[in-house]
């Protein structure tokens, strides 16, 4: 999510240099995927816990991975028709630009300059992340406002450092930074008591907590001091493909709101009386065809991966070892930010 500033500048420079549309034609990407018979999805190099990792059998697992599978099910009718391309952050944007992958489903924060300069589009936001704090439970700290004078572990050369400095200056507090160069080092520093607090994105902190010897000894503070919206990234050359990616995400969210689950989607498709459910699942209307998809695209998709809530729970939430709270990633009806436009 947050990476060394130099790498971002490098990637941006590369992309700016290469800002040539790779495939001309308005439906280039969709046609290429259909012809190829699989979606090529750029993910992390297996090191993004809960988002994209390899399991014991060597299969990809994670939130981003499930999003790619959902997209493949929506577009091609088969969630297995997806190829995962592991990309280091420094080659990720350039690989998308060059056409080596169809989309990036990795933790790339949506920012103004990236959107404006890279000739890329974020097709929605699937995780609202942000920088938070982890402390030992025995310190009895309940708010980041109580951290005046604390020693704080963080990763050097990243925007984490800048956000932290801003937050402490704004609140008139002081701190001593202990700079590590990787998550593992920061975890060890915290566990060994070299610092009182570790600051990183909430998703990363939740993973770090799982990696601790005794995860129950550590708590995440409620304050979130930065915005880190991440979502699927596509090229700007195929607006139709962007729509399909966006509506894949929106439909997963709408499905959670309407109670459509992996287990009951077939049943709801045949028996539900809710007009919106009927439109989504293709029982009435020709909504799939409007995007060039099959009539039952949403049925196949939800059958393959479940709705947003199920995907989150399985990979990041209470159903996973990470146990990340939903936080901002709750539905708008529950006080979160997830909101799908109406399906009509």
């Amino acid at each position: 999510m947050r990476h060394r500033v130099g790498e971002i500048v490098c990637a941006a420079a590369m992309a700016a240099l290469l800002a040539v549309p790779a495939a001309a034609g308005s439906n280039g990407t969709v046609d290429a995927i259909k012809k190829r018979g699989e979606v090529v999805c750029g993910v992390s190099t297996g090191q993004s816990t809960g988002m994209s990792t390899l399991d014991n059998k060597g299969d990809w697992q994670g939130f981003e991975v499930d999003f790619c599978r959902a997209l493949a099910a929506a577009l091609l009718g088969d969630a297995t028709k997806v190829k995962f391309a592991p990309l280091e952050f420094k080659v990720a944007f350039a690989s998308l630009q060059s056409g080596a992958v169809d989309l990036l489903a990795r933790t790339a924060t949506w920012t103004f300059s990236r959107d404006a300069e890279l000739n890329l589009d974020w097709a929605g936001i699937y995780i609202y992340d942000g920088q938070g704090f982890m402390v030992a439970k025995k310190l009895n700290v309940s708010s980041a406002k109580e951290l005046d004078g604390a020693t704080i572990c963080l990763t050097g050369g990243s925007t984490t450092e800048l956000n932290l400095a801003d937050y402490f200056r704004t609140n008139g507090m002081s701190y001593t930074p202990i700079v590590g160069n990787a998550r593992e080092q920061n975890q060890q520093n915290l566990e060994a008591g070299r610092c009182d607090v570790y600051t990183n994105e909430l998703g990363g902190l939740a993973s770090s907590r799982t990696a601790m010897k005794n995860p129950d000894d550590w708590v995440l503070l409620p304050e979130v001091i930065s915005k880190e919206p991440t979502g699927p990234v596509v090229r700007q050359d195929d607006p139709r493909f962007r729509d399909i990616v966006y509506w894949t995400l929106a439909t997963l969210i709408a499905a959670e709101e309407l109670g459509i689950k992996q287990a009951n989607v077939r049943e709801m498709a045949s028996s539900s009386d809710n007009p919106e459910v009927k439109r989504i699942l293709g029982t009435t209307g020709e909504f799939g065809a409007m995007l060039g998809l099959s009539k039952d695209w949403a049925v196949r998709m939800i059958e393959a991966t479940g709705n947003y809530g199920e995907i989150f729970d399985r990979n990041l939430g209470q159903g996973s070892p990470v146990k990340l709270a939903r936080g901002l990633n709750r539905l708008w009806t529950d006080g979160g930010l997830l909101y799908a436009p109406p399906f009509r």
Binding site: G46, T49, G50, T53, T210, A211, P321, V322
Partner: peptide
């Protein structure tokens, strides 16, 4: 890199 990826698997964190 495959070992580094393995240690990021939520089931093997740490």
């Amino acid at each position: 890199n495959i070992v580094a990826a393995g240690s990021s698997d939520p089931r093997w964190l740490g």
